[in-house]
Structure formats: C-alpha cells, structure tokens
Amino acid sequence: MTTDSTRPSHDDPGLQPERTDLAWNRTMLSMMASAGVFLRWLPQHGWFAGCLIATATITTVAIGLGRKRRLQRAIEGIHQGIVQPPAATVTALAASVITLSLLGICAILFNSLAV
C-alpha cells in the first residue's frame, strides 16, 4: 500500500481531523440540499428565492475552499499538542444559517399574507 506523501499525517488513533473534515463535508452537503429546496421556490418567490440560493451556494463554496486549511491546522495542532477551533469559520457559518432561516421564514410568512 502506498501512502500519499502530499497528505499530512498525524499520530491520532481516533482520526479526529478526518472525522472533523467529514463533518464539514456533511455541512456542505446540507447547504447544497438547502439550495436545492430553494430552487423549488423560484417560480413562486422569484428573486427572493434567488438570494436564498446564492447565500447557500456561497456558504457551500466557502466551506469547500477552507477544507484543506482546516485539516492542515488540525493536524498541526495535534503535533503541537493544542488545537485551536476555527472560531471565525463557525461564526460565519452560524450567521449564514441564521440568515437563511430568517429569510426562509419571511418568504413563507409573506407568501401566506399575500394569499
């Protein structure tokens, strides 16, 4: 079995960095699924649904672009004995999810008021 020399290694038997990376992958998948749900709203809500789709897509791309850096930082943290959580990333993701939730609720409420 050959090992990938470009992939950083660590001595964590629990594979914590890999599990965390998989969790971020699931988060990306959830955001893509949300964008798919918002696609169904396009005929009814128009540009408003487009904003929801754009927000979910931008969040997905941002998570994807930072994956390698987060994994590398986690592995370096294991070697150094202390792992710093990605507070800015988690805060930005929370803000994105809250924004999507509030905009989704507004779309539902304003649609029910218009009927």
Rank of each mutant, 00 (worst) to 15 (best):
S9L: 14
T55I: 10
G66K: 15
S101K: 09
L22F: 14
A33C: 04
K68D: 02
A62M: 15
V61P: 05
C51I: 11
S34D: 02
R70D: 03
S34R: 02
Q80T: 10
I75W: 04
G77M: 04
S5V: 13
I82N: 06
G46E: 03
A87Y: 09
S101M: 13
G14C: 05
S112W: 15
L39Y: 13
C106T: 11
L39W: 15
L113R: 07
C51P: 09
W47C: 04
L113M: 11
M32K: 08
T60R: 02
V97F: 01
G77C: 00
L103S: 02
A107V: 15
M28G: 00
S96A: 09
R40L: 06
A94V: 12
H79W: 13
T2E: 15
M31S: 02
V90N: 06
L71R: 13
N111E: 15
L71T: 02
T60D: 10
V97C: 01
A95N: 08
W24A: 03
A62H: 10
T91Y: 12
Q72Y: 07
L22I: 08
G14A: 08
Q80A: 11
Q84S: 07
G46P: 08
S96T: 04
R70T: 09
G66T: 13
W24P: 05
A56W: 11
R40C: 02
L22N: 07
I82W: 15
R70E: 08
G46K: 07
L109G: 01
A33P: 10
S5Y: 10
L22V: 09
P17H: 00
R67A: 06
T55N: 12
I105A: 08
T99F: 01
P43W: 05
W24Y: 07
N25V: 07
F38A: 01
G81W: 06
I105R: 08
T57F: 01
A49W: 02
I108A: 03
P8E: 01
A56T: 05
T89G: 00
A95W: 09
A114T: 09
Q16F: 09
S112P: 11
I63S: 00
S30G: 11
T6I: 07
M28L: 05
E18W: 12
T55M: 08
D12C: 03
A107L: 11
A95K: 13
H45W: 15
I105D: 07
D12W: 04
D4N: 08
T20V: 03
C106H: 11
W24S: 03
I108P: 09
G46A: 01
T99I: 04
